[in-house]
Design a protein around this nucleic acid. Structure first.
Lengths: 213, 213
DNA sequence: GTCCTCGGTTATAGGGTGTAACTCAAGCGA
DNA sequence: TCGCTTGAGTTACACCCTATAACCGAGGAC
């Protein structure tokens, strides 16, 4: 968007095809999950033969990396937008849940079982820090509880960009993350499927515990 | 173990080879995760050629099913043993965490991202119910809080074998599950890796919230 | 001792990642 | 405008995987 404007027709074409590949990749991912993502299948759907895609993504991992980057970006934007429109922790939680239900495999791509050989590049963790920063900002009202975890976090807080946030806020931001992920990932993985209760109500109540206890 | 004792030498051999295959499968799983599980590689390590394994497991999914069944069985035994030796919810949580850290991929096999085409057979959900039953038993001291989720769970409780357990206990058992899984799965997936704090302390504090708030 | 069951084999089909060698058109500078 | 170069796309191939088919041979059952 804001990169060098010296885009000749060659680069424009390249960028467009790259985007089209990613589009097909998202569709395939949403349908069958990251494990079923196949460069060859994407190529076939685009009407070209397998190895052609390697001009645009050097490997399957590189394509997956691009997807992960976009997913983190999308989540960070969603959370940030909710925060800036005045949402509290509960509002953020619902924004995250909606984002996850919109494309469950996209959530699992980030927070699901990591793919065996894959190692995330540094910039993706930078984007996930962005999410953390918003969570901490939304948690700043948290009162100090005096529990040992807060003393521990006060000494291991380099992951928090906000150097002035009280340890209680760090703890609450982590609680947000782990509890939202706990309910959400079990729901997305289908573990509540046969149980009959409404996952949304469990989610609501769990989120309520964040600000209550 | 307690099945028909009319085991001729043929069946004995078959069972032994089947067990050996599963053993190699567990090693391969622990090393590289379920996605990297390969029947051919197991066969090679056992000194026989690929298709021979299909005499023992009709498909890759069937082998994975056997692994999942054993994993559930092992987890249920672990939780039950902790419960019977007098452990409270905190004790159960630590038993689960130890079990998970002992073989992270085994935990992820059950509670991680589901494999695309796979559908769990009914008996595995039966074993997971066993875990739930113990959790509910350990949660029976939970006091009624009057929150709406409890009314909801009181009407959707067919997943709880214990028909006399108060709704507050059902809620607490679910909280145990979702919160333990929330912290544990993020830890196992490496999402706390660069953050510096001790996952064990976060786990402890999170478990403490179960009985406190 | 004969038969048949069953474990093992090779061959093969089909799908996947990724590389190598080649072709051909489009862009670019002179 | 003309050539040269760049790069997109192709086929062929090596190597992984799952899974099936056809076949062989030994061991158990009677």
């Amino acid at each position: 968007m804001s990169t060098a404007e010296t885009t000749g027709p060659r680069e424009r074409y390249r960028a467009q095809v790259q985007a089209e590949i990613k589009q097909h990749a998202w569709e395939q991912l949403a349908a069958d999950g990251v494990a079923a993502l196949s460069l060859k299948a994407i190529a076939k759907r685009m009407g070209m033969s397998g190895p052609a895609l390697y001009r645009y993504y050097a490997s399957r991992d590189e394509l997956i990396t691009a997807l992960i980057r976009d997913a983190y970006r999308s989540l960070a934007d969603t959370v940030r937008a909710a925060h800036q429109s005045g949402a509290d922790l509960g509002g953020l939680a619902h924004a995250v849940r909606e984002w996850a239900l919109e494309d469950p495999q996209r959530y699992l791509l980030i927070y699901g079982t990591p793919v065996p050989g894959y190692h995330a590049p540094a910039d993706t963790t930078a984007i996930s820090n962005e999410v953390m920063t918003v969570l901490i900002a939304a948690s700043r009202r948290a009162a100090n509880s005096g529990r040992p975890i807060e003393a521990h976090l006060a000494q291991h807080r380099h992951w928090a960009d906000d150097r002035s946030a009280p340890a209680a806020a760090l703890r609450q931001a982590l609680a947000f993350w782990t509890r939202v992920h706990g309910v959400l990932s079990l729901e997305l993985a289908g573990h509540f499927a046969g149980m009959g209760f409404d996952p949304a109500q469990l989610f609501d109540d769990e989120v309520a515990t964040l600000t209550r206890g």
